[in-house]
Design a protein around this nucleic acid. Structure first.
Lengths: 108, 108
DNA sequence: CTCTTCCGTTAGTATTGACTTACTGTAAGT
DNA sequence: ACTTACAGTAAGTCAATACTAACGGAAGAG
């Protein structure tokens, strides 16, 4: 998978508010599925499904500890999003300053 | 609107694949609605609706030139997303290195 | 003034996907 | 072996939303 593809998946994954909550909780520290579901209004299977999407997007990793599955934040997806965003950040600044310059010329 | 709120809106907005396409085209350079729709498979009203969402998310700006509306990339939304992500980027690296250290200890 | 172009809005439809319930599986404790 | 705890899977429901078709409005050309 290319880095840009991962960035796309990560953006799609974080588009959902519930998944953002889950991701932010995982980002705060490693956690099991049950613990995550306890702090949310949705059921545990729902959390499990969201975690799978986040995992496929490269935003979290999974590791077993007995019957519990511990989820941790994954630098790959976060980094891919960061790279994708940095590209557009540069463009945004350039386009914006061009636009401002143009406005100044038209209204002296 | 707070900066974090704008980051949330921006993430939700870019969750849709069609909106990502539109956003990337606008990021490549200012464009009118018709020109954007011509390069996509969806109808012009659909593009118009997506642009409104992107505008409300602070990702693009609108300016009239006669009957045409020119859309440009907006640094505000892009910057808000960048800030939001940078927070988690730091956590991602820290959590990952902790995890690796722990794995090394357990399997010497 | 009329015609054309370009665009936003509205209403209605269709599709996506988020959620729950029920079930199955696995590991640890007794 | 039985029970308990924890989690993924499957199937079905329902709400959110992406999309099209039809309409209306503003600006420039003739």
């Amino acid at each position: 998978m290319t880095n840009s593809t991962r960035a796309i998946d990560a953006l799609s994954a974080l588009g959902d508010p519930t998944r953002r909550s889950i991701f932010e909780r995982v980002a705060a520290g490693p956690a099991a599925v049950g613990a995550l579901a306890a702090g949310l209004t949705v059921s545990r299977p729902a959390v499990s499904q969201h975690l799978r999407v986040l995992k496929e997007a490269g935003l979290v990793t999974e590791s077993a500890e007995g019957t519990r599955r511990i989820y941790r934040i994954d630098p790959r997806g976060v980094g891919a999003m960061r790279d994708w965003l940095d590209q557009h950040w540069d463009r945004a600044l350039a386009a914006f300053s061009d636009f401002v310059d143009q406005q100044v010329e038209e209204t002296p």
